[in-house]
Design a protein around this nucleic acid. Structure first.
Lengths: 266, 266
DNA sequence: GTTATACACTTATATATATAAGTTTACAAG
DNA sequence: CTTGTAAACTTATATATATAAGTGTATAAC
């Protein structure tokens, strides 16, 4: 308090509306973010201390705390114990791309369906055996599917599945709808019939940019050479055993991931 | 761990360690997540109510609340007022890829540097003018840079910058280090000298898979045809005016984004 | 059988209070 | 000058308590 010559941060006079539908902590978080948007709080500058915010906005310390925690979680400020809370500068590394942005492709919309190209039992070669943690030569289910959207092929999916009659995952995966559910993210925690999703515990997904080979280009109805996104996936069941290894390949001219960094208005 | 009636939700007997370095709310969140990992709490199933958790683990309601909020933020459970809190199933759409995963390429490591290929003043064509919200024909700074990593070209960067002597952004952007800072995400909220980053308020970044053209392939020292990641970016200053439009192009065989969906151990 | 109500649950929000712990500054001791 | 310490800040954690609001069920009234 004694020394605040130039550091006097002048915050907006906006206040908390107690009759609002929006909870106080959310309002305060938005007020603070708005201060950043308007340039009153610039990157590197220190936010008013929690005690100051309590006094200024007439809310309890816990409410202030929660508002600031939201901003911390959103990555726009950093709170350092004993020092203060500071506005973070913009960095490229903060950019995140979500696969869920493809939901518009595989939502509940009409014109989206899955075409099963092939299903057959194949012996696992060295690569498949290693990925699925089984012995080489053991039988696996190999599936090829084409995911259509608006009468255009959008994704070509190849997948190796553990072959085990006692595993219910196999039956479920054959359902074409299961794939769509996995993509569209209709969690439906309400229903206990999670089909595929509820039998998968976790998975690893990696994204690459590749060239389409002849077969892929033909199925996706494009001419070579053509760039593509390739999503390799490896899913595990609740025993932490791999059950599915495969790739989604989508034509690059239909796919684009967008994100925002820095201060977003809302 | 003897056998019990199946419908009884049996949570682990793990308890909160009050002498631990880890705060109680974090411990509880981890205990609950561990229950999911072990299959005691499966997707779709309901977590014990907050009141039950208070009694079982001997913590306050606020602590339980915070633990559950963490799980909600992490996207592994959904809390529905009046009904309960439920474990979410795994969905592909939850997969997120962070640009910050490239930090190992552009961190503080040795062998990482930026080569300025060209800087010149060019008149904005229709496309540039529209992106940067300036009049066609107005002067802009066009820069081409090559980002090296371990004596190999990793990214080719082209950028159009607003040309305005009154804007400090121009001077700062010429610093080759600024680019690295933007990538490596060394926020350094401590220092008020944010250089480039602190002058940028926000930006839009989109990711595409493309084919390298002749010039790009030559600079990145690869043969065509070659797939590549292309990150188009548009950055704004604190007046919400565009200041930088450009593309980072990286060879696909050196770039891979990985992510996890579902339950992560830690 | 249908409807309305009351009750028992759930999560959501908010306050007041206390303690712990990290950081910086000021100041006295050497 | 350096060093040690105390004080005054900061955020972090935790409890206890109260109220609000959504959901589902049992029950009484019609």
């Amino acid at each position: 308090m004694a020394h605040r010559p130039k550091n006097t941060v002048l915050l907006e006079t906006a206040s908390i509306d107690r009759d609002s539908f929006e909870p106080a902590y959310a309002q305060l978080a938005n007020i603070l973010r708005q201060n950043m948007v308007e340039g009153l709080l610039r990157p590197g500058s220190q936010l008013p201390s929690e005690a100051q915010l309590v006094e200024r906005y007439g809310v309890s310390a816990m409410t202030v705390r929660r508002a600031i925690n939201i901003l911390v979680d959103q990555g726009v400020v950093t709170a350092e114990q004993g020092r203060g809370t500071f506005v973070k500068p913009v960095t490229l590394s903060a950019a995140t791309f979500q696969l869920g942005q493809l939901e518009n492709l595989f939502g509940n919309r009409e014109g989206t369906n899955v075409q099963l190209l092939e299903t057959r039992i194949v012996a696992a070669d060295e690569r498949v055996a290693r990925k699925l943690a089984i012995h080489e030569g053991k039988r696996t289910i190999y599936m090829r599917r084409l995911l259509w959207n608006d009468n255009e092929p959008a994704f070509y999916h190849r997948e190796y599945l553990i072959y085990d009659p006692t595993r219910p995952i196999v039956e479920a995966e054959l359902e074409v709808t299961a794939l769509q559910q996995l993509f569209s993210g209709t969690s439906e925690a309400r229903s206990e019939t999670g089909i595929t999703s509820s039998l998968l515990k976790h998975g690893e997904i990696s994204m690459e940019a590749t060239l389409l080979d002849e077969e892929e280009a033909r199925l996706l109805k494009v001419l070579q050479p053509m760039a593509a996104f390739c999503f390799e996936h490896l899913f595990y069941d609740f025993d932490d055993k791999p059950v599915s290894w495969g790739w989604f390949i989508g034509r690059a001219d239909r796919l684009r991931f967008t994100t925002q960094v820095g201060l977003i208005n809302a």
